[in-house]
Amino acid sequence: MVANTMSNVTSDVRSRKIAAVGPYLKSFSIVIVFVVISAFFAVANEYFMTWLNWVNLLRQSSINGILAIGVTFVILTKGIDLSVGSVMALAGMIAASLVTSTNQHLVLWAILAGAGTGAALGLVNGVIVTSFNVPPFVATLGMLSMARGMTLIFSDGRPVPNLSESFRWIGGGSVAGVPMPVLILFLVFAVGWIVLSYTTFGRYVYAVGGNEKAAKTSGISTRTVVASTYVISGLLAGLAGLVLTSRTTAALPQAGIGYELDAIAAVVIGGTSLAGGRGSLVGTLFGALIIGTINNGMDLMGVSSYYQQLLKGAIIIVAVMLDQFRK
């Protein structure tokens, strides 16, 4: 009996070791890309490798990182979420309106309102996709425009400034030298990683993306799973909107335009397949860091922002080409 238990334990440990090595190897190549790009900028500019610059770089990457983690859930189910940039603008706007000098609510209410707005719009996306069979690209493209429209209507096209100091702390404060946005990013990453790796919901996300029919035959409520990923994506877009608004100390109606593309780029660079069922949050995190590093490095080198766009696009394509080549 004891021997039996022992052998079970060892085989369990062995199989878990193998399980741990698989994704590790996969995310390894993205780490190399990250290191190579960092090394290049370190040689090109002496300031790049300083502690201060890395704190700055991480802070610059945090909003894209939070968005990209949400979008990863959606892409794993073979979907896409184009609405995150607009959703974050609306969420930030609504939250800001609660904490101006003329409308002094508790910061907690603002946070709940911002995150709730994101989650609600995500739910709308999810329901349109799963219950009305509208392709995710179309549903979220529509939401991209609708959320932007709602932001403009709500704000009458004007920024909302004069936010309370405690609200500004969300994006501007720091704990033990680590900026709040970075802390929030790592917290979101940790929770997301646990959900994807250790919960049944996480498994279902991969299963639905890998083969929706098989998942359904296996007794999984595929609609609920898919709709939930849009809620997660919306919720995190709302959270990113709070961080952005707090950092810029005002809610701008044109905030977040084009952010969805950087988020999708981070997911794709991170090796998550647009065909669904394959990918990881570790990849997405490094994908966001790579984009942040490129932006930061080129800023330091004084590359004009016109050329930055051109180079960033080329680097995204090359990174994914290398990944394909490796396969």
């Binding site: 199989s15 399980a19 049944t200 498994r203 279902y204 991969y206 299963a207 890998g210 083969n211 029919k213 098989a214 998942a215 035959t217 296996s218 007794g219 999984i220 069922g277 394959r278």
Partner: peptide, 20 residues
């Protein structure tokens, strides 16, 4: 087409129906 998540592992496929 209907039976398996082909890109998933053997373990994940076997456990799929009984995870809950």
């Amino acid at each position: 087409d209907v039976g398996l998540v082909l890109c998933g592992s053997i373990a994940h496929n076997i456990a799929l129906s009984s995870l809950a």
